[in-house]
Amino acid sequence: MKTRLTTALALVLGLASPVAAQDAILNVSYDIARELFAELNPVFAEKWQAETGRSVSIDQSHGGSSKQARAILEGLPADVVTFNQVTDIDVLAEGGMVDENWREAFPNQASPYYSLPAFLVREGNPKNIDDWDDLAAEGVQVIFPNPKTSGNARYTYLAAYAYGLEKNNGDHAAAQEFVRKIFANVPVFDQGGRAATTTFAERGLGDVLITFEAETGGIARQYADAKLERVTPSLSVLAEFPVAVVTENAEDKGTADVSKAYLDFLYSPEAQRILAKNFNRVHDEAITAEFAANFPDVKLVTVEEVFGGWDKVQEEHFAEGGILDSVFVNQ
């Protein structure tokens, strides 16, 4: 508290307060990663201290991924971003905040872990929700956030669409009709993934919550009393969680090294173990095997396979007046 007071006081007086051998970075992240980074950050801080003898404090800001990207463009001084959406980092690259070739800067196309949209239902699954087509049934209330502001919900949209395509042998009109039916069952679109979780778990609204598998696992654990049940659909979209150093800010602040080290750390076995423990799927096979119970089998398709890549998705689906608008806004 004392250092906080000093820092705040320095801020008030308009002074920079360079404390010796202290690094500070800001990780701007997506909405539901709160608990995850609260667990990861101290481990990194310890490691960084051991390796360099310097202490590091990591600040967190969480919100809808697109909203966060905009804030960074407006001047939110992020050193690193850990998003759930490739397009949101692309926006930063376009704005000159992030290196153009950011996807080559880290392994696995700069995605240290991945997840997929999955379901969480009430105790005993009273509405028998097992797969995407159960969500389109009449009388089922579906909860997920606003796909216009939440990357999480955009994956839900894409997964439902991909399922619709597969069921209808690639008929786009039928797939859109299918997605429209699901959207018509949504009583409330929250701004971010976590607000949707609150709506479902805390306010008791809806029969099924669609969010990242990582969130369904964490919530089922947090609300153990409510006996919420995880349901993994037969097919889903692979959701990469890309990371990047916000070079523009990091170079300015002289935090490029610690920022890179922080993101590298996410690929280390200890970080991957924490990630897997929190129901995020990782590429490390040994750790995946260790937490196999967390990850039921599912057919995963990628945005590249089904939709021809993010640029195309952005243009055809998410842009103003795109397919998403036709199923979402004018339902």
Partner: peptide, 8 residues
């Protein structure tokens, strides 16, 4: 409010 486009 619930932020439902066109409704709330």
């Amino acid at each position: 409010a619930g932020n439902l486009p066109m409704k709330t």
